[in-house]
């Protein structure tokens, strides 16, 4: 079931990516110029943070399959901490953009920048809530090697959030 949801979410993001790409095709100069205002290093740091967070979630799943509940909870918490870094960096980027008076109305590029990254940002926040809920249940021994559907579901969702960012970063920050 979570897979149907994940595919549907990927579809939404996929259409956003394609809309961005074809909107760019109609206004290449504007997109290339605007892209230079983005902080590529911040984007890359966030990519590293998210893939590492995803990896920690993998470790959490591995731990629970070996029936190591406490290790599972620890890895989950570490994953959430990484997500926290993502949030901080992203908010910093948003603050810098706002300080330069860059809004959704600035131009089509920044409309997409705000819409896509913010939509993804909301997914990160939701993912954090889900991971925290799974962590809380794991800590209270709700999962075991035999039954840990909740961990797997939360993990799959989090990997989806990661995957979307892996496409978003080169597309919006780097490619021109």
């Amino acid at each position: 079931m979570i897979w149907i949801f994940i595919y549907a979410e990927l579809l939404v993001f996929g259409i956003l990516f394609l809309a961005y790409a074809f909107a760019r095709a109609r206004n290449v100069a504007l997109f290339n110029e605007s892209q230079l205002h983005l902080n590529r290093t911040a984007g890359a740091v966030n990519t590293l943070v998210l893939i590492t967070s995803s990896y920690f979630v993998v470790r959490a799943v591995a731990a629970i399959r070996a029936d190591r509940t406490r290790a599972c909870a620890r890895w989950l918490l570490a994953a959430v901490a990484m997500a926290g870094i993502f949030v901080v960096v992203k908010l910093g980027e948003y603050a810098a953009a706002s300080a330069h008076g860059i809004t959704m109305s600035t131009n089509t590029f920044f409309m997409f920048y705000w819409a896509m990254t913010f939509f993804h940002f909301m997914h990160v926040l939701l993912g954090m809530v889900i991971l925290l809920a799974v962590w809380w249940k794991a800590r209270h021994g709700a999962y075991s090697a035999a039954e840990h559907t909740g961990v797997e579901t939360g993990a799959s969702y989090w990997h989806m959030v990661d995957m979307v960012w892996i496409i978003l970063f080169p597309l919006v920050y780097v490619m021109h």
């Binding site: 579809l11 259409i15 809309a19 909107a23 959704m104 819409a115």
Partner: peptide
């Protein structure tokens, strides 16, 4: 604002899902 043309089109196009 003009960005609603994009946001409205993209998201509402997915409402049939």
């Amino acid at each position: 604002p003009e960005y609603w043309q994009w946001l409205g089109s993209i998201f509402s196009a997915l409402e049939p899902i």
